[in-house]
Amino acid sequence: MMPTFAFLILIGLFFLEIAYFKLADHFNIIDKPNARSSHNSITLRGGGVIFCLASIIYFVLFGFHYPYFIVGLFAISTISFIDDVLTLNNKIRLSVHLISVLLMFYQWGLFDLAWYWIPLALVFVIGTINAYNFMDGINGITGSYSLLAIITLYYINKNIYAFTSPALLITIALSLLVFNFFNFRKKAKCFAGDVGSVGIAFTIVFFMGQLILATHNFNYILLLLFYGIDAVSTILFRVIRNENIFEAHRSHFYQFLSNEKKIPHLIVATIYLLVQLIINIILVSVVNENIFSALLLCLFCVVIFMAVRFKMEGKQRLLKAQVV
Rank of each mutant, 00 (worst) to 15 (best):
F111W: 08
F111G: 09
D112W: 01
D112K: 14
L113S: 09
A114W: 05
A114Y: 09
A114R: 11
A114T: 11
W115E: 01
W115Y: 10
W115F: 11
Y116S: 04
Y116I: 08
W117A: 05
W117M: 08
I118P: 00
P119F: 02
P119I: 06
P119H: 01
V123N: 03
V123A: 14
F124W: 11
F124E: 00
F124L: 13
I126C: 04
G127H: 01
T128A: 15
I129S: 00
N130M: 10
N130L: 09
A131Q: 02
N133A: 07
N133T: 12
N133F: 05
M135K: 05
M135N: 08
G137C: 02
G137M: 01
I138V: 07
N139M: 12
G140I: 13
G140R: 14
G140F: 14
I141Y: 04
T142L: 09
G143I: 09
G143Y: 06
G143T: 10
S144I: 14
S144A: 15
S146R: 04
S146C: 12
S146G: 13
L147F: 15
L147G: 10
L148W: 02
A149Q: 14
A149H: 07
I150D: 06
I150C: 11
I151C: 10
I151Q: 04
I151H: 00
T152S: 15
L153K: 10
Y154K: 10
Y154I: 10
Y155G: 03
Y155D: 01
I156L: 15
N157E: 07
K158R: 11
N159A: 12
N159D: 11
N159K: 11
N159P: 00
N159H: 14
I160W: 02
I160V: 15
I160R: 10
Y161Q: 13
Y161S: 15
Y161C: 13
A162C: 07
S165R: 05
P166L: 03
P166Y: 03
A167T: 06
L168W: 02
L169I: 12
L169T: 06
I170D: 03
T171G: 09
T171W: 02
T171E: 07
T171Q: 08
I172Q: 12
A173E: 02
A173K: 09
L174K: 02
S175F: 05
L176N: 03
L176T: 01
V178A: 08
V178G: 07
V178P: 03
F179R: 06
F179W: 06
F179V: 04
N180G: 02
N180V: 11
F181N: 09
F182V: 07
F182I: 07
F182Y: 15
N183R: 13
F184S: 10
R185L: 02
R185E: 04
R185F: 01
K186Y: 06
K186N: 09
K186D: 08
K186Q: 10
